[in-house]
Amino acid sequence: MSDPVLTLDRVSRDYVRAGRRLAAVDEVDLVVHRGKTLGIVGESGCGKSTLARLALHLVPPSSGRVLREGQDIARLDAGALRRLRARMQIVFQDPNASLNPRWRVGAIIAEPLRAQGWSRQKRLDRVSEVLDLVGLPQDAVDRLPSAFSGGQKQRIGIARALAPEPDLLICDEAVSALDASIQAQILNLLTDLQARLGLTMVFISHNLAVVRHVSQRVAVMYLGRIVELASEADLFDRPQHPYTRTLIAAVPEPGRPLQAGSVRGEPPDALAPPSGCHFHPRCPLAQNICRRISPPLIEAASGHLASCHFPGASAS
């Protein structure tokens, strides 16, 4: 557990909207360990995609530090940053929007290698290698993305991400646009690749079942903050935060009754978040202290962090 590939240290990212400050990511602490997958779940607007952009240094933090193997990314010189970029890659949600429709697949996959100054022969060899890795035929190189189905396009996106031999792969809703039968193929591919290549992954999704399936540890976000962080089994089988319990209960699943009564309302406006604990207006357990004081993210059970004044309690 002592080999952190990525560390977020009190990271915040603010945006200004209509003259007001919006804390998309609000003092987040996270460590991602080598060879493991950290899942991040939350509803629209909770800040999970901004977190991905911060981790990749696509946006700088407003405060706090993003560390790669202990080094602050913001303090790297241009050359070191460029070399680091090759080692952290992202797979996007919509392959139709993230693959250039006018480029042949070979050029798409080789693009990050060109940016890194690889020779032509090395690029060709590597493209051929990653096509094998993701289960696409070699003749894909000469075809356009439009010749492929949605699932195959997502394989092209994964091949491009793997081409520069990254050790950190960020998947932002990487299977959310896919049909169920194709989604299972891509999830199996990602877990196989991780085992084979020793990849470290951050897997971001609104889909709790998918996150549970791929992750060893899981963080739950609500309005820019992490409200719970634990191992996959602890988080899903013994959730400590009432928001996490609400989310899990709301997932419709064959053989499980739907529990819609456990949550009130919808997530509040991020420009005017509630005082104290952001979740208190919707929480069945809320007391006065919840309205006044934001609960810190602390150990509620062994190795299980939750930011709640009454972790583990159930509504009476």
Partner: peptide, 23 residues
């Protein structure tokens, strides 16, 4: 096959039974 390909929030399986090919 559709049912078996589904990841579950209530329990983790080692590997999904993916349906090969596409519609």
């Amino acid at each position: 096959a559709l049912r078996r390909a589904l990841p579950r929030v209530s329990a983790k399986v080692a590997r999904l039974e993916a349906l090969e090919g596409q519609p």
